[in-house]
Design a protein around this nucleic acid. Structure first.
Length: 201
DNA sequence: AGCCAGGCTACCG
DNA sequence: CGGTAGCATGGC
């Protein structure tokens, strides 16, 4: 019996479809068609940085401010002074760091010219660690990669699927070896884990 | 009034 | 290699 798959079925039954990622600060339940265009893809990328170690609520406020000022465009983020960008995204926390990170990922994004980046390339960008790299691949580019976070490791402990806590890549491999490599499924599973662990720590 | 949130970098031993 | 301080706002 595949415990990883079984756990997925249980979580889905209990919480229902989550339908990440939010675009324009709205979830798109049961619609994995997002992002639908380049603009939304770029918004998702900014969101992955802004939500690092921060609630989505606070990150979304920062995205709202950027949207209100019509700044969710790579050229605009490139142009703007870092100090001003920091003030605008203040609500996301760590705003000085994140303003720098947003500029870094934007420079990288422009260099791609529409191509899908590799995980290795993403990991070379300052401010992009493993979870953020995988989030960008999954939520912006719809690549079938599994996103691991603190909750994921904790859940495997709680369910006694693992005795000891594994590192990021090992944990990721456990999911990817046991679940069909589909974008929709990895999207759903990660969101279900967050939902489960938020309600039952 | 603390404690924590959908992490990452830099630096330590 | 593994461990940890620092980064910061807002909600409960």
């Amino acid at each position: 019996m595949n415990k990883i798959k079984k756990l997925y079925e249980e979580l889905l039954r209990e919480h229902g479809h989550q339908g990440w990622w939010p675009i324009n600060n709205k979830y798109t339940p049961k619609n994995y068609g997002c992002p639908r265009n380049e603009k939304e893809k770029y918004e998702v990328i900014l969101g992955t940085i802004l939500t690092q170690n921060t609630t989505w609520r606070n990150a979304a406020k920062a995205l709202d401010e950027l949207r209100r000022k019509k700044l969710i465009k790579p050229r605009e983020i490139s142009k703007i002074k870092q100090e001003r960008l920091a003030r605008i995204i203040r609500s996301a926390g760590y705003h000085n760091q994140k303003a720098n990170y947003l500029k870094e990922i934007t420079k990288f994004y422009l260099s791609l010219k529409g191509r899908t980046p590799t995980r290795q390339e993403l990991l070379h960008v300052k401010g992009v660690g493993k979870e953020t790299a995988d989030s960008i691949l999954l939520y912006a580019y719809k690549e079938p990669v599994f996103v691991v976070d603190k909750y994921t490791k904790r859940l495997l402990q709680r369910e006694k699927i693992l005795k000891k806590e594994k590192d990021y890549d090992e944990t990721r491999k456990i999911f990817m070896d046991n679940i069909e490599k589909k974008y929709e499924t990895y999207n759903e599973y990660h969101a279900l884990i967050v939902q489960e662990m938020k309600t039952k720590p």
